[in-house]
Nucleic acid binder design. Structure first.
Lengths: 192, 192
DNA sequence: GGGGTCATGTAATGAGTTACATGATTTT
DNA sequence: AAAATCATGTAACTCATTACATGACCCC
């Protein structure tokens, strides 16, 4: 169960459920997603199990909030989870789609599909490159960073490599499709 | 809902639930996983919805089986699903682990973690390369393949690229970790 | 007769999403 | 006065896993 451990990781520093959700949307989004409703439920369960502690706290704006933080046992649990990598099966819907794409028997739609995939990967790659640009302001980037920043940087490096691979694959695939179907009508928006 | 559509894709040709499961374990495993119990349930639901039809059939060995096949509406549903790529959020547990790995404050365990990741990616890459070796026997490989094989080959090509990227990242990361922690005790099994 | 594989399912549980409900405070 | 943001939650549902239950047929 990854969500539970990610929460323990985030809550090494105190935060409310709402703030945790913002954290997900900002950084974890790139490799994990979570809805508020589930965050709240998991937070409470973790507190029941003694892995988190909470206190009510006034908010700068809006209603008062419940601020959670990992307990000693919570941090111990986190460290234990970090000892052996969890690489369960990925579930990539779009790969299944590509697998069956011949069923369309329609070169134009196939091409549109692949172009949409390409653009999606390229946009995500651009996002990560922008994040990297920000990090580069730090003269210690990347190998003189302190551990707390170095490890997150590793996840960025992996994302950059994998997305670059995906973009390259999509480019190559579009070229291969064009070679297989020479009399394509281009459909680049600028009409036939 | 990808499982439902993958089932419709597989069942362009008739097969029993058990045979579908074998298909998953052989080819879909690389980008989608499914348990037998869920396959059976989904199969029945799809039949209730008129997207699959089934008939009982004697088996060569073992008890009689229920053989499913996509109906015209089922194939129509499949084709519709193929028109726009579904790229939901990935959930990669190990990336979250890498993100928090500094929490261990233990260079040896961190190194072991990264080496295990490396070996996992390398093993999966080797699997895909073996599959590719088999395909290469076909003189039409890769660009003269008929559409039904060309599209599956595209998924193989993507897997190869992404796994190569992951292996390269793990290699680089191990080197960077070594550079950060010069007096490591190597722990390669051959003692200190 | 025991183990493997073929074959189909049910029940309980867990993980995650979507929809709904409520309300304060701040900005426009 | 309305919209955005801050803030917490419940309920219903869907998707998936794990454990269990059953039984035929084949080979050793």
């Amino acid at each position: 169960m990854a969500l539970e451990h990610i929460l323990l990781g985030i809550l090494r520093k105190p935060a409310s459920g709402y703030e945790v959700k913002a954290h997900f949307d900002r950084v974890f989004r790139h490799f994990w997603a979570a809805e508020l409703s589930q965050i709240y439920r998991t937070l409470r369960r973790l507190e029941d199990e003694g892995l988190l502690a909470s206190r009510a706290e006034a908010s700068a704006k809006g209603p008062s909030k419940r601020v959670y933080q990992a307990t000693a046992r919570g941090r111990q649990r986190l460290r234990h989870w970090l000892t052996v990598p969890e690489v369960g099966d990925e579930r990539l819907t779009y790969v299944s789609q590509v697998y069956f794409l011949a069923e369309l028997r329609d070169a134009a739609t196939t091409r549109r599909f692949m172009r949409a995939l390409h653009d999606h990967f390229a946009a995500r790659l651009a996002e990560l490159e922008a994040i990297e640009q920000g990090w580069r302001q730090d003269p210690r980037y990347p190998d003189a960073l302190p551990d707390e920043d170095f490890h997150p940087q590793l996840t960025l490096a992996l994302g950059l490599r994998k997305l670059a691979a995906s973009v390259a694959w999509a480019d190559e695939t579009l070229a291969r499709l064009a070679a297989r179907d020479p009399d394509q009508e281009a459909d680049r928006g600028d009409a036939a």
